[in-house]
């Protein structure tokens, strides 16, 4: 059973800003499709009267108090950036 087609995989790649060659697309489409099919096996389970689960952990209500902690220095914050101008990150022009 096929769920995903090539166009859908190309679109997902674009949304994630991944540039795929036609050959990569040919290879990835059946792989991604197989993964989705595998996960879809879950829908065979009868979940009538079972509350939807939003999180895998059996933990709720994790909070921190509204207390400031020290931020990074500007130099540290920018340290890994491929581009900067003064105290700002710089990236190729993006349209608003």
């Amino acid at each position: 059973m096929s769920t995903l087609n090539r166009e859908q995989v190309a679109r997902i790649a674009h949304l994630a800003r991944l540039e795929l060659t036609p050959a990569e697309l040919d290879g990835l489409t059946p792989q991604l499709d197989a993964i989705v099919d595998y996960v879809q096996r879950l829908s065979a389970v009868d979940t009538t009267d079972i509350e939807p689960l939003a999180h895998a952990l059996d933990v709720i209500d994790a909070f921190r108090e509204d207390e400031p902690v020290r931020s990074l220095a500007v130099e540290q914050a920018l340290a890994n950036s491929p581009g900067r101008r003064g105290p700002c990150f710089s990236v190729p022009a993006a349209l608003e």
């Binding site: 700002c88 990150f89 990236v91 190729p92 993006a94 608003e96």
Partner: peptide, 13 residues
């Protein structure tokens, strides 16, 4: 916050 400057976009987080 983004500031557009010529062919660059400057980012203040």
């Amino acid at each position: 916050k983004l500031t557009h400057e010529g062919n660059l976009t400057l980012v203040d987080l």
